[in-house]
Design a protein around this nucleic acid. Structure first.
Lengths: 239, 239
DNA sequence: CGTGTTCTTGAACCACTTCAAGGCCCGTGG
DNA sequence: CCACGGGCCTTGAAGTGGTTCAAGAACACG
């Protein structure tokens, strides 16, 4: 829109105000003052496909607000088994716990852009601005609710239910970014990633998606799927 | 100690200061002033074995700080499948999310005592006392970390690893209550409960515990187990 | 001392995994 | 431009860890 006209020099406090994901991220519902403070300690960063963003047990120097692309969060067991904890989309926050060490690995599924903060700076700011702490807590509680949903999925749902739930969840999360009603669902992660998220093997994920395709509930297209019958898939996801 | 001498009438603000679980619960590290405010809106309550404390999707009128006994948190699927999200011990908080509706069911495994607050009162207090919000957030982040550990367990660990991890986790949590080094581990919940927590069947849990007993790592005793080789069980839990 | 609940154990079964092979897509270099 | 190589995905066939079904043992409680 009027973007080009105003950045001969990109003033730091201009970044947040023009941020595409502000309305759905941690920074939503913050006062201008707090936004400026956040802005002052933030930096825009990029990560290439497969690039590491954080490594399990390493000291956590930074926290991030994802603004573009997709991030894979995972824990590795000693023998190489991997469990993906979640996928982050634009608007999601990486490092909520503000703990001194990362509880998991994070890397870029596809090219990622993010808003980076020093963990200690961010932590201090949170300590001095109750409004920001409040917002952080809201986001954290949302995260906890998602984790508990995932526990139910992993503990008690079948392969078919898991895959259906995954597709529905991803569609719903994308719909927050103005992709509402979109039937094309990009799946930038591999089948192995989906499997490690759903507690299955990549073959089971592939077979399950094939079955959904055979039943005309979706169409497998390059880079994702097209949902032909989202309601039927949603129905499969929790019963 | 001097308890009997001072409660001809049990003044509300006397309760917290004498609370056995204060040091390990939400109320830890709160100032005397905040403690008094909490105290003023709290009430002591009891629940008998199997009594319902909260029902999934019902409006949440109360939140609780558990002071005695054990609480079972679970989600039910439409067809009766059950996933236990967690077991609460003394010092744990029920209703962290402060959401308007309960995200899960809660009932008493054995007789439970708790400190009850009106959700709205508690919520208001949290909104006006950043220190309390801070503490709530800490507790919530701990909860999130536990949930993520559980995701790894459910997604990628074998039955043997799950049961071992369960026993170790329970022992560690009990050790916070001065039960450190105790080899006797009470298991007030049924095998079916353990199974629904670990994403297994009760038969698998029973067989797995029997196997640990056969290998002399533990002894099955009425109401629980005696850990004969806690280190070996711990080693089983994550490899 | 019976009755119901929980726990254990055995045997058959099955959903998902494992192992294996071939196909597709895409970037790269000849 | 096309042949080659390497991911990634799909599909088949065999294998297995955990489930399901079933029956009896231990225990708890009136």
């Amino acid at each position: 829109m009027q973007g080009l006209a105003r950045h001969p020099i990109d003033l730091p406090h201009e970044v947040c105000s023009g941020c595409a994901v502000r309305s759905i991220s941690l920074c939503a519902a913050l006062e201008t003052e707090e936004l400026k403070l956040l802005d002052a300690i933030s930096a825009q960063v990029h990560f290439g496909e497969k690039q590491t963003i954080a490594r399990q047990d390493d000291p956590a120097g930074w926290v991030f607000n994802i603004t573009g692309g997709m991030v894979r969060l995972y824990r590795l067991l000693a023998d190489g088994r991997r469990q993906i904890i979640g996928f982050l989309l634009p608007g999601d926050f990486l490092g909520l716990a503000l703990s001194e060490r990362h509880a998991f690995c994070a890397d870029a599924v596809d090219p990622v852009t993010a808003c980076r903060f020093s963990r200690t700076d961010f932590s201090c700011l949170v300590g001095s601005k109750p409004r920001l702490l409040q917002r952080l807590h809201e986001v954290a509680m949302h995260e906890l609710a998602l984790a508990q949903d995932h526990i139910v999925l992993l503990g008690r749902q079948t392969a078919g239910e898991r895959v259906a739930a995954f597709l529905v969840q991803l569609r719903d999360r994308r719909s927050r970014h103005g992709a509402a009603g979109h039937l094309h669902l990009p799946l930038p992660m591999t089948r192995a990633d989906i499997a490690d998220y759903l507690g299955l093997t990549l073959e089971t994920v592939s077979r399950t998606i094939s079955r959904l395709a055979r039943e005309n509930l979706l169409l497998v297209v390059p880079g994702g799927v097209r949902l032909l019958d989202p309601d039927a898939i949603e129905a499969l996801s929790l019963a």
